[in-house]
Design a protein around this nucleic acid. Structure first.
Length: 598
RNA sequence: GCCACCUUAGCUCAGUUGGCUAGAGCGCCAAUUUUGUAAAUUGGAAGUCCUGAGUUCGAAUCUCAGAGGUGGCUCCA
């Protein structure tokens, strides 16, 4: 975590420490139980995590969720035994003896011995002093396993030793643990709620998007309603950008390999780009996986003076990346997508102002959706300098610069070592949604590498040629990812301005069908997105369907309304707003439609 | 790409050791009902049981291969 972050965060970290201790201890209870049930297994390793804990086992038996009750029963027995977690410091020789039959543990032992560090183990010790498990572990742990108030095993999955697919596949068991049953119940409720909000489920139910085996995996097809939401999101960002002197450009879906060779993407990502073949030339071409290289060529299309800068180019073009099949998932990871992309070419002395404006625009958009957020400062992996292009001195400067920018703008941030792009460090926005889940959306990068590689220049006041700085910036990140996050954030109940259908008119019976048609026509003329439910269903059924579709407003139109010339309004979520005139209702909806803080 | 699991009507799913002329609810269509704030009644249509090959007298069910999906791993410009 970061040095900065305010006091609240630091305090949270302390209570987090207690939770981590508890989960770490629960993890020992898990592998102690597993050893009893599967005597031939070899323990690999496992940590406590933000959500719970997991442990990797090397075992011949197949473990499935059907085995969880038996394992949980054994775990409960151990917790009830009131065993103590006893720390022991030992020498290398003894460690080697204890873990001789376990190649995973031996690997650790060798590594720790290599660093000349001390060994510590934790013994699961019954009140009568009998040791039922000993594991190489630096701790810390709870003193007694009985402090684990509530736990649950969640899932089982395969995982490679050290995450390397050349190694043996181990069995990973996930679980979670809390100090109290209430906390566990709350967590399980959240999991359940997240499942209900799953954008893949809602996307189908609400007819927003679909996939086709014939079109291909990871290639989303938006139906009219989904296309509407997607378009509305990009229009929103576009309107925010246009107000700040950003200009939209239009660029092709393909480009020659030379472009990506110059940018460095070819060397780095060739295997993840779709190759395009021409019938008439041998030129190697690719579907573009990002916009930056093409935007450099718009900059390069004419001579630039220091007076022309900054040049702010935005682009919503479709991008294509040949992701591995196992990595695709709903709209969260796709092979065709678009970013709300922007590249700002500016002088070094303009960078701070441009960034502050970009951060303010981002704040406006995040506030509109009600996202709290912080930034991750994504820096180089210090152990692998070869992964990055450009002058290390410039990297050092820019990485420090990012900290100043966060401080200046009073934005909470934390460090993300090894998360930088190959050409620049990143300031990545991590938003927290309605369920407390975190998603990476925006990104902001100060790039000295691309302008140099493409030899972009401008003429300064003294007639000298200089490289501009290139800022890369996205607010929502990608439209598809934003769709996913917003569908789940709102649980499908979009605000009025994002709703494909804002109002459903419900005639009480066929007698008021003509009146309903008139109302619908008038609202459409006022620019509202209205639908008429002319099904032969009962009113109750129509309301039920309207609620299920998450439409913000329902108009109940019966003989009462036809006579008075008014409409009865029901807002989604069982809110009866009574009757009002059509113009009052239209005004109300139009006001909400404009509510987003553009 | 690797590991595990999954794929039956538009959707959600049932289908017992291979015997199926493959079922249910919702949805859809039709008729009756003309409905007042979260599900009217009755009837009907609808399936290359993901695809291909194999085993078998016989395959939704077993085997192999492929496609797609889910949960992980790895990756994410």
């Amino acid at each position: 975590m970061s040095k900065k972050l305010d006091d609240k965060y630091i305090k949270m970290d302390e209570s987090k420490q207690d939770t981590l201790k508890l989960r770490h201890t629960a993890e020992h209870v898990l592998h102690t139980a597993m050893q009893k049930l599967y005597p031939n297994l070899k323990k690999a390793m496992g940590p406590a995590t933000d959500e719970g804990f997991y442990f990797d086992f090397d075992l011949d038996d197949k473990v499935t969720e059907a085995d969880f009750p038996a394992i949980e029963k054994e775990m409960a027995r151990i917790i009830k035994s009131e065993s103590k977690m006893v720390r022991r410091e030992i020498e290398a020789d003894e460690a080697k003896k204890i873990f001789a039959g376990n190649p995973y543990k031996m690997e650790w032992v060798e590594e720790i011995a290599g660093r000349g560090e001390k060994f510590s183990t934790y013994q699961m010790t019954l009140p009568n002093g009998k040791v039922i498990d000993e594991d190489l572990c630096s701790g810390p742990h709870l003193d007694s396993v009985s402090e684990i108030g509530a736990f649950k095993l969640l899932s089982v999955a395969g995982a490679y030793w050290h995450g390397d697919e050349k190694n043996k596949m181990l069995t990973r068991i996930y679980g979670t643990a809390f100090a109290t049953q209430e906390e566990l119940d709350k967590y399980m409720w959240q999991l359940d709620e997240a499942k209900k909000r799953d954008h893949r489920k809602l996307g189908k139910e609400m007819d927003l998007f679909s996939f086709s085996d014939l079109v291909g995996s990871g290639l989303p097809l938006y139906s009219p309603k989904g296309a509407f939401v997607r378009r509305k999101l990009t229009e929103f960002v576009e309107s925010v950008q246009a107000a700040q002197g950003y200009y939209q450009v239009w660029t092709p879906q393909i480009a020659k390999a030379d472009l990506f060779k110059t940018s460095g993407h070819y060397d780095k990502y060739k295997g993840d780009m779709f190759r395009v073949v021409s019938n008439y030339s041998d030129e190697e071409m690719f579907l573009k996986p990002m916009n930056c290289p093409q935007h450099t060529q718009i900059y390069a299309a004419q001579p630039r003076s220091y007076r022309d800068l900054p040049l702010r180019l935005t682009d919503f073009a479709m991008l294509y990346r040949d992701e591995k099949p196992g990595e695709l998932s709903g709209l969260g990871r796709v092979r065709s997508f678009s970013q709300d992309d922007c590249h700002i070419f500016c002088r070094e002395d303009q960078v701070d102002v441009e960034i502050d404006v970009a951060l303010q625009m981002t704040k406006k958009v995040m506030d509109t959706f009600g996202f709290k957020y912080k930034y991750r400062l994504s820096t180089r992996d210090v152990d692998h300098p070869e992964k990055y292009l450009g002058d290390p001195a410039v990297w050092d400067r820019v990485e420090k610069w990012a900290v100043e920018i966060m401080e200046r703008n009073n934005i909470p941030y934390y460090d993300g070592p090894g998360e930088a792009a190959f050409y620049a460090p990143k300031m990545d926005l991590v938003a927290t949604d309605a369920l407390g889940r975190e998603w990476q959306l925006s990104t902001l990068q100060i790039d000295y590498v691309m302008p140099e590689r493409f030899n972009l220049v401008y003429t300064d006041q003294n007639g000298e040629q200089k490289h501009p700085v290139m800022l890369h910036r996205a607010i929502l990140g990608s439209a598809e990812r934003a769709m996913m996050v917003l569908i789940e954030h709102y649980a499908g109940a979009f605000p009025v301005w994002l709703s494909p259908i804002q109002v459903t008119a419900l005639p009480v019976s066929e007698k008021t069908m003509a009146y309903s048609e008139k109302i619908v026509k008038e609202l459409k003329e006022k620019g509202l997105r209205v639908e008429l439910n002319s099904d032969a269903d009962s009113l109750g059924k129509k309301i039920r369907n309207a609620e299920a579709s998450k439409v913000p407003y329902m108009l109940i139109l019966g003989e009462k309304e036809a006579e008075s010339g008014q409409v009865s309004v029901r807002a989604r979520g069982q809110k009866d707003l009574g009757s009002m005139s059509l113009s009052d209702f239209a005004e109300k909806v139009i006001k909400e439609d404009k509510e987003r803080s553009v």
